[in-house]
């Protein structure tokens, strides 16, 4: 395993796409130390900011408050990346495989346009999780993002496949222009599922809806049981016991489609 301990919080954002298992997997200690990063406009080396230990491994651990370190794990395809502390923006963006685990929180754009792999965030996350970058047609196309805390705006924007599960609540525009995949949230503020054409949003609590979602009855879909079982192994509980309650099903967004689904859990009155 390679460990990188952040010496101190950088004064301005540190862009560090080199901090990825793919990059360090075959590198010797001194090569890892010399990898380029950018502190603002200045090019610098990994060992300017991190104490480096270990070499040649696709297991990489970053320690310290890396909340200002951007692009960690960009485009990674394999291996294991663990961040003991926080991670900055674009964590695991364009990721194709492997796993990322963050014990603290992550910034905006975590898992943006990812196509595979697993990202687990122990704390909160920012906005645009698993989203499409501005102007792109498609957000995440596969993979899984699990968040213990809450998340920000536009979570899962334009996602096409894959799963995002968030225990806490999300801000506005969760599942914006969603095209497929599954987004599970503890709760949500406004405009959830706006302009979605396909895909499923599951909320564990009742949420405010746009006028362009039509109520289509209650259900306890079987696909959700599968999800519940899978997510249960990761410590996420998704209710699906028909004796405990049912999901209210809404379809829309009728401004663009009727094939998107929002499921909101409603426990039976006890």
């Amino acid at each position: 395993m390679i460990t990188l301990s952040l010496k101190e919080e950088p004064p301005v954002p540190l862009e560090a796409e080199a901090l990825s298992p793919d990059v360090v997997a075959t590198l010797r200690y001194d090569e890892i130390c010399a990898l380029p990063m950018f502190l603002g406009k200045r090019q610098c080396r990994v060992d300017d900011h991190f104490v480096v230990e270990g070499e040649a491994s696709d297991e990489l651990e970053i320690r310290g408050d890396a909340g200002r370190v951007k692009w960690i794990g960009r485009g990674m395809t394999r291996g294991r990346l663990r961040i003991v502390g926080n991670a900055g923006m674009h964590l695991g963006a364009y990721m194709k495989g492997g796993t990322i685990e963050v014990t603290g929180s992550a910034g905006d754009w975590a898992g943006a346009e990812m196509s595979g792999g697993l990202i687990r965030i122990g704390g909160n996350a920012g906005g645009q999780i698993g989203a499409a970058y501005r102007g792109s047609r498609t957000g995440m196309t596969d993979g899984t993002i699990l968040i213990e805390g809450s998340a920000g705006l536009e979570v899962g924007m334009r996602m096409k496949r894959g799963t995002i599960a968030i225990k806490g609540s999300v801000k506005d525009f969760a599942g914006l222009e969603m095209k497929g995949g599954t987004l599970i949230v503890g709760g949500a503020e406004l405009r959830t599922g706006a302009w979605m054409t396909r895909g499923t949003i599951v909320s564990l609590t009742r949420i405010p809806l746009l006028p362009t979602f039509a109520y289509s009855g209650t259900c306890n879909p079987t696909f959700l049981r599968l999800y519940a079982r899978q997510l249960g192994t990761c410590g996420f509980s998704v209710p699906c016991d028909a004796s405990a309650g049912a999901y209210l099903l809404y379809t829309g967004d009728t401004a663009v489609s009727d094939k998107g689904e929002i499921l909101a859990w409603q426990p039976h009155a006890s």
Binding site: A194, P211, T212, A214, Y215, T254, A255, D258
Partner: peptide, 13 residues
């Protein structure tokens, strides 16, 4: 968003 749906004669709540 409601106007967009009405434009296409789609249902709104």
């Amino acid at each position: 968003t409601t106007l967009r749906a009405l434009l296409k004669n789609r249902p709104v709540d």
